[in-house]
Design a protein around this nucleic acid. Structure first.
Lengths: 355, 355
DNA sequence: GATTTCGATTTTATCGTTCAACATGCCATT
DNA sequence: AATGGCATGTTGAACGATAAAATCGAAATC
């Protein structure tokens, strides 16, 4: 029975250390470590004895010490944004929850931080990584000409993005939702319900998400032959409820107003619903509205919406980031992962009166 | 000029180590450490030389190594919850953002984790603390008979709560918002606008927040002498929009319906707005509605609401938690902090037609 | 002139863990 | 009988930082 030289002392956190467990179980430090990290290397009898002592002493390995040794904090950085005024909800918090959940499954934690813009975000990511606080970061909501990928690549910060840039996107890993497919599905849904004049309420051009959603509407309309000759029923404005209400009114004031409308977000969609109610129109019968993002507000108001597979996005991103930051060199050198997922339409009363 | 024995090697994160800086500057490790943590101990000339080298090498001290040595990870744990269905918004994400922001100001980071209920939350907090991953945690939304304070106290996990339990709340640190004062302010606001029959839409009894908000309405009504003889205009139901709409309809169907209504949350308040619209009543003139929490939905819909001073809550909580987890023993032993803050009324069109 | 004081810096020890290398004993090959 | 492999354990050396003690030279004091 070997004995360690130093005497056992209580750890700072009040928890036992691996050395105390080793002494109590009459084995060496490393054997305790093996019981935890590589149980197959330890004889069953020894393992059980050590495990019993671990239980008695309430030992939990100190993660910080572990991180230092293996030089990889199981920590993922993510920038949280201030809540947008006038927006009913975003999928931002749903995404964060998913990251945390799948991160835990891979023994990783999520560290959140704030930044006033994407440039500061990139700087903070770099600092967090350099100081060894996080092993990698997740980027949210990439714009077409986002500078974050290049900055982080240059700084050697491992990252995976939700969304992608217009160019060079094959050089880094990303997961994106096919926004244009989403609005196309919405158009198909409305066409199947008999609608022919289908409008679109979107954001001003320049954002990758907004432009893709507008393109999906346009292409689907064209595919159904519904653009020919008719005036294009699309309007643009900021992503707020009041803007949605105003834009919807504008559409309804046209000489031949739409009978169905695709909104680029639930916020705009909910705003549109108000315009419909204000005019005393019957939702789902006189006019149908489809939103995007399937936020709680949509389900509360019966707004048909497009649900992004956030859970799958989160899972893929975490898996990829764990791969990138893993110690397996050949693994990390593999080609970046690029995945495009399809949203699902959740039909509600705003397009199907019965529901 | 002393020289360290080991040869300099590049750190895992790609960043330089303190040893490399020391060698490049021709000083010992400790001097570099002092330049960073106790500049006054270093002669100006030496300090400037070391600082220049730090800049040239882009050195950032490795936080993980620092945490191990000082046995206090500058990390705060916080449980994030899944987004509630049918709820337009909560202040949960605003609170998280505030925590992150003020945490950064105190050189602390926020680690988020998930849990399915408060018991699992307490267990995870304990594990996070025992493994040295966090130095303390923040609890959100305490219920009257919450078990978390006792569990964490027993486990020796430092924590500060937003909210408080019915009993034993003087034994731990908390910050709370005076919910009953909030609804009382709402009643005062409506009375000042000439309303006499003022209703209340709340949650079923049993939650500390919900009960306090109901009590505030009741006490303020009594103070204004508006309860005498009249039928009490209060109804209860789950915290969803559809519930708000239904409860509001119920109130409007009474023989002598209210002209003003205080809702326990913006979600219920927004639901109530729909009932008002459905009946063609003019909001702010025929009937006034006040919500609670000042969520983006309230500002979007012109719903007068009570704003909780979340920023102040977050700041107080972080400051207290940093004190509790600090290495200053006498500081940590001081009496717990108990602070009750007042919400503010934000007047909008739902009570003041002009706005 | 010897001693003390003090500021500036270095040396030593340590935080709690895991990696790499090396013992040891036992069994199957050769 | 020597060799190799496998299962099981142990030991020394990191990981990168900081606290505490030790050193050293110069100035101040006795």
């Amino acid at each position: 029975m070997a004995r360690e030289s130093g005497r056992a002392r209580s750890a700072a956190g009040g928890s036992a250390t691996i050395l105390q467990v080793a002494e109590a179980a009459g084995v060496s430090r490393q054997t305790v470590s093996n019981v935890i990290n590589a149980p197959h290397r330890v004889r069953q009898e020894t393992r059980e004895r050590v495990e019993r002592v671990i239980g008695e002493l309430g030992y939990h390995p100190n993660r910080v010490a572990r991180w230092l040794r293996v030089s990889s904090p199981g920590m993922i950085g993510y920038r949280i944004r201030p809540v947008a005024e006038e927006s009913v909800a975003s999928i931002h918090d749903r995404f964060l929850h998913t990251l945390a959940e799948f991160g835990e499954a891979s023994d990783h934690h999520v560290l959140v931080f704030t930044a006033s813009d994407t440039e500061e975000e990139a700087d903070r990511c770099t600092a967090l990584c350099r100081t060894g606080t996080v092993s990698g970061v997740v980027l949210y909501d990439l714009t077409p000409y986002d500078t974050r990928p290049d900055r982080l690549t240059a700084a050697g910060v491992p990252f995976v993005a939700f969304g992608r840039t217009a160019a060079g996107a094959d050089r880094y890993s990303w997961v994106d939702v096919d926004n244009s497919a989403g609005t196309a599905i919405a158009v198909d849904h409305l066409v199947a319900a008999g609608h022919r004049r289908i409008g679109f309420i979107g954001w001003p051009e320049g954002s990758s998400v907004g432009d893709a959603r507008a393109r999906g509407w346009l292409e689907a309309m064209d595919r159904h032959g519904l653009l020919a000759g008719s005036h294009r029923l699309d309007v643009r404005g900021p992503d707020t409820m009041s803007s949605g209400t105003r834009l919807m009114s504008e559409l309804l004031d046209r000489p031949s107003p739409p009978t169905g409308v695709v909104a680029a977000t639930d916020t705009l969609g909910v705003g549109a619903l108000h315009a419909v109610r204000d005019r005393g129109l019957l939702l789902g019968r006189d006019i149908a509205v489809v939103g995007f993002d399937d936020t709680p507000a949509a389900s509360a108001l019966g707004l048909t919406s497009l649900r992004q597979p956030i859970e799958e996005v989160g899972q893929l991103i975490i898996t990829e980031l764990v791969r990138l930051t893993g110690r397996d060199t050949e693994d990390a050198a593999a080609a970046p992962m690029n995945r495009l997922l399809e949203p699902d339409l959740v039909a509600r009363a705003s397009t199907v009166p019965g529901r």
